[in-house]
Simulated assay, not measured.
Amino acid sequence: MEPDLTIIGAGLTGLTAAIEAAEHGWQVTVAEAHSRPGGRARSLAAPYRANAGPHAIYVDGPWWAWLEHRGLTPPIVEAPRLPGLVRAGGRFGPWPAELSEAIAALPAEAPPQESFRAWLLRHVDAKTAEAIVGVAFIFSFDHDPGRLSAEFAHQRLRRTLAGGARYVAGGWSTLVDLLAERAAGLGARISTRTRVPTLPAGPTILATSLATARQLTGDSSLTWPSARVATFDLGLRADGGPGWFRVMDLDDRIYAARYSLADPTLAPPGHELMQISAACAPDERKTDAERRVQRLLDQTWPGWRAAVQWHRGTIRTDCTGAIDLPGTTWHDRPAVSRGDTLTVATDQSAAPGLLAEVGISAARLALQQLGETPRPSSESDSRHVQGRSR
């Protein structure tokens, strides 16, 4: 049977769209180029169950509410009660209380047309402004968050520091498996190792990267700024180690966390998994970013090099969500609807949210654009759809 709806991409966005579409009676096919679902949310198999990058889910967001409503919330863990280490203004120490006070004292609203740095300098001194800009790396992954829209950065800063972040136990693949199982249980067909060279004729959601959507459609308007980040994963022997769970280098835009301290299943017994993100300037090489990370670890974890048992690293471009520059908001990003039957749901689409939540919002908008109830092509299809709807 020809599908009522084709979804290209079985990442979190594509699987969410498949579940909601199937709930509304669509006959859904999901095409995934990789050997298993998950997209950028895939995790490695044991012994080190590293994600494609360090991830947390925000339990105060609309997607979490969507998962709760369907009984799909994954097991989650909070950060362990170990101190964090922060570098700001060239000095290492605990999270500065005065930094939290300065952020809390900022106005509730910030303008979209002004840069984040310029807006901050109207409210705090230059040293504090640069520290707050450094904090904004955590949710933007950008090498210079001060250049972003003040509204974009300020809204996400408040939410990031509100304490709603949690870690998915077992890595993001735990959540991917829950979504894939629910989609399949509702009748959606997930075809892995399936590359789609041309757009299907019927209703379609492109739940891919914006670059892939641009390539498939030939639509040059499908572009929006994103960050460039180097990610490094380390598997280490757990023989001692520092007394911190994470290091936030606000000066050099590096975030390192020992994730297996929160979730021991991510590493084999006697070992631990650390995942690191380092913002990269447009022309910075991976080796240069790696040297910056190594310097940070040398300063904060003497002897770490001898403990390394496994490592990997890569540069990730345009895969950490949208960033809005001054004068733009999410409304200005590429529209979800691209015609009567084609929609594009990516984390750089014109939809609200934080990081991957944007893609989820875009997927739900895409289904609204296509119509929640499919139009059956025959009487037999109509009986099938009506039966599924009940």
Rank of each mutant, 00 (worst) to 15 (best):
residue 163 G to P: 03
residue 348 Q to S: 10
residue 281 A to D: 11
residue 221 S to F: 02
residue 284 E to Y: 02
residue 173 S to P: 07
residue 287 T to K: 00
residue 126 A to P: 01
residue 373 T to E: 11
residue 197 P to V: 02
residue 314 T to W: 14
residue 200 P to C: 13
residue 326 P to Q: 14
residue 88 A to S: 11
residue 301 W to P: 01
residue 124 V to S: 03
residue 314 T to G: 02
residue 109 E to N: 00
residue 59 V to Y: 09
residue 266 L to D: 07
residue 278 A to M: 10
residue 109 E to Q: 10
residue 184 A to G: 05
residue 30 V to K: 07
residue 148 L to E: 00
residue 28 V to S: 13
residue 249 D to Q: 08
residue 352 P to H: 08
residue 13 T to R: 05
residue 387 G to L: 10
residue 137 F to N: 05
residue 44 L to T: 03
residue 304 W to G: 01
residue 288 D to K: 12
residue 365 L to F: 09
residue 276 I to T: 09
residue 111 P to S: 04
residue 205 I to A: 03
residue 125 D to N: 15
residue 258 R to Q: 09
residue 360 I to Y: 03
residue 63 W to M: 12
residue 98 E to A: 08
residue 136 A to L: 04
residue 233 D to I: 05
residue 18 A to N: 09
residue 360 I to K: 10
residue 148 L to G: 00
residue 295 R to M: 07
residue 234 L to P: 06
residue 208 T to C: 11
residue 77 V to M: 15
residue 223 T to D: 13
residue 109 E to P: 00
residue 296 L to R: 00
residue 233 D to G: 10
residue 94 P to Q: 09
residue 351 A to R: 02
residue 357 E to R: 06
residue 247 V to E: 06
residue 226 S to E: 04
residue 329 T to W: 08
residue 171 G to S: 06
residue 301 W to K: 00
residue 82 L to F: 10
residue 251 D to I: 06
residue 219 D to V: 10
residue 226 S to G: 13
residue 249 D to F: 05
residue 60 D to R: 15
residue 382 S to H: 15
residue 105 A to Q: 08
residue 340 D to S: 15
residue 166 R to N: 09
residue 278 A to Y: 04
residue 149 S to V: 02
residue 171 G to C: 07
residue 51 N to M: 14
residue 247 V to L: 07
residue 184 A to Y: 00
residue 78 E to P: 00
residue 207 A to F: 00
residue 108 A to R: 15
residue 150 A to V: 05
residue 60 D to G: 11
residue 318 D to R: 01
residue 266 L to M: 11
residue 206 L to F: 07
residue 17 A to R: 05
residue 308 V to T: 11
residue 80 P to I: 05
residue 180 A to R: 13
residue 58 Y to P: 00
residue 212 T to M: 02
residue 313 G to P: 02
residue 234 L to F: 15
residue 185 G to H: 13
residue 376 P to D: 12
residue 284 E to M: 07
residue 18 A to G: 08
residue 155 Q to S: 09
residue 135 V to H: 11
residue 241 G to E: 04
residue 143 H to T: 01
residue 326 P to W: 08
residue 141 F to S: 12
residue 75 P to D: 15
residue 204 T to I: 01
residue 69 H to W: 04
residue 352 P to I: 07
residue 389 S to C: 13
residue 215 Q to N: 01
residue 16 T to P: 06
residue 285 R to M: 07
residue 340 D to I: 04
residue 304 W to M: 02
residue 229 V to Q: 06
